[in-house]
């Protein structure tokens, strides 16, 4: 709290608002972007077994990952009010054949865990 107050006072005196944003000569920019982790597991609705190879996509950000052999996925992405996540079975009949599914997440504040069950075709 004390540090924050001092930051404001010094920032005002020096007439610049970027005192606390910096990057080393040979480093990267800093990262202040609010983001969150969306993770979960995809299983077969009929058998309850995990499904490998399902494409999990954050539709608006063209970000995706395929589920591992435990049906798990984990993606860090930017926070948005509404976020559509799609689950697609693209590998034909490998690991079974499942219907695609979309999920809409709203008002996301923190990391989230999804337990997804896909219906067989």
């Amino acid at each position: 709290m004390k540090n924050k107050l001092i930051r404001k006072i010094i920032g005002g005196l020096s007439l610049t608002s970027v005192l606390f944003v910096f990057q080393a000569c040979y480093g990267t920019p800093q990262d202040f972007e609010p983001d969150f982790r969306i993770e979960g597991q995809v299983k077969s609705k009929s058998t309850g077994l995990p499904i490998e190879g399902i494409k999990v996509s954050i539709v608006d950000y063209m970000q995706y990952e395929f589920t591992n052999d435990k049906g798990e996925f984990s993606i860090y992405t930017v926070i948005n009010n509404d976020m559509r996540i799609s689950f697609e079975d693209l590998d034909s009949t490998n690991n079974g054949s499942f219907l695609n599914r979309d999920t809409l997440l709203t008002n996301i504040q923190d990391n989230i865990y999804l337990d997804i069950k896909l219906e067989s075709k």
């Binding site: 540090n3 001092i6 010094i10 920032g11 005002g12 005196l13 020096s14 007439l15 610049t16 005192l19 910096f22 990057q23 080393a24 480093g27 800093q30």
Partner: peptide, 26 residues
């Protein structure tokens, strides 16, 4: 304004150095 900026920035550097908060680790 330039002089004020310089003085303010020197103060800031002094404070940041004393505080030496680690923000950036290679």
């Amino acid at each position: 304004i330039t002089s004020l900026n310089r003085i303010g920035f020197r103060l800031f550097k002094k404070w940041a150095t004393n505080n030496h908060e680690l923000n950036y680790l290679f």
